[in-house]
Amino acid sequence: MTISTRKTVLSGLAMFGTVAMLAACAQAPATTDDTNSAAASDFLPCMVSDAGGFDDKSFNQLGFEGLSEAADALSVKPITVESTSETDYQSNVQNLVVQGCSLIVTVGFNLAAATVESALANPEVNFAIIDNDADLNFDGKVDAPNIKPIIFDTAPAAFMAGYAAAGYSKTGVVGTYGGMQFPTVTIFMDGFADGVAYYNEQNGTDVKSLGWDVASQTGSFTGGFAAGVESLANAQGLIDQNADVLLPVGGPIFLSAIEAIKSSGKDIAMVGVDADLYETDATNKSLFLTSILKGIKVSVSDVVTGAGEDSFDATPYVGTLDNDGVGIASFHDFESKVPSTLSDELDAIKAGIIDGSITVESPSSPKQ
């Protein structure tokens, strides 16, 4: 199956602003007999979150865990700064530069403009950005030689999750909505909707996918990445249309979807994004059919460790199904509720995507 490539227009850059909350830093002593330890002793890794903070049970949290893991291995103490709004991005990044950070990891597409500006102004500092290719000029090149993009081709994993959602649905209706219309959001929605379409094609069914139109690249969004009334309204709108599987894409917005599901009293499942929400939000684990996974923790840990060992490489990291940079979680508590053949079908789909017999494409897929 080949799904045609579609084009979309990327719009909106982060606003610059002020205000930062800064933490103190301590470094481990250098040893004379270990080159890597000596390099690490002078190494100061830092991170700026997007709105949502480091306990969002999603991409900010995974990035923080990867940073912490690498810092522990290198015996250094990182500086981490949380952004509460888009006006914090530029000042947060700049204040980390002032504090002498060796590597600054920025979390999320929203920080692209601040990251590029700071990298160009401070060529002696290395940067990494999660979920963005640092190509604000749209010329296919990273805008500064000291930025390493950490990006993920999540469309194939979302495709598998869409297939699974269609296979599980009892009402024949599933739905999705996003935080903001960014490529890192819509790539999930593209894959999910196409996976539902593939399920219908393969099984002669007519499961409806609501909330996102792949052809026109239009759909439902909350306008931000925080839980609240907008997310609740989007989730409720899908529930009112009889959807029994929901895919909210955008960090903590899934928390409002959970609220809507519980209020409805209906048997509705959820598909998580970025992390395995069954594990990161154990209180609500009974709701999660599966999750679309990004290897954010592992990739950030590897990038930080490499930089700490004086081997920073600005070549983009692209997570794929083939390198296990993306995937889907197990069905956990839903194992007995999904069709018995579904897992085998998903294994075959994964193999087909990897060997090229099934082509999954999104206009938001990273360049490789």
Rank of each mutant, 00 (worst) to 15 (best):
Y198H: 11
D310T: 05
N242L: 05
Y198V: 03
M15K: 15
E65K: 08
K285F: 01
Y317Q: 12
M189R: 01
A197G: 08
T315Y: 02
T171V: 05
D267S: 09
W212L: 00
S220L: 13
A243R: 03
V273G: 05
L62R: 06
T290N: 14
A215N: 13
A112F: 03
N60M: 12
S336L: 08
D42H: 04
V303A: 11
V174Q: 10
A26H: 06
F109Q: 05
T305D: 12
A282C: 02
A144M: 11
L277Q: 15
G306V: 02
S118R: 04
A226C: 04
N323M: 07
D347S: 13
S365E: 09
S365N: 15
V173C: 12
G352L: 09
S11F: 12
V174K: 05
S209N: 09
A14F: 14
P183I: 06
N242V: 08
S220F: 09
S263G: 14
G53T: 00
W212E: 03
D281W: 13
S83C: 03
A161V: 13
T341C: 00
G191Q: 00
V326E: 03
V303R: 10
T18K: 14
Y317C: 09
C101D: 03
V81F: 04
L238C: 01
T31K: 15
E82L: 05
D33C: 13
K141I: 10
D50F: 09
D50Y: 13
V174M: 07
S68C: 09
V81T: 10
M180V: 01
L321Q: 14
S364V: 07
P29G: 03
G175P: 04
M160T: 01
L342R: 09
D135R: 04
L120A: 02
N137E: 15
R6I: 10
A114I: 07
D302L: 12
F221M: 11
G265M: 07
L255E: 12
E124C: 06
A307K: 06
Y198I: 03
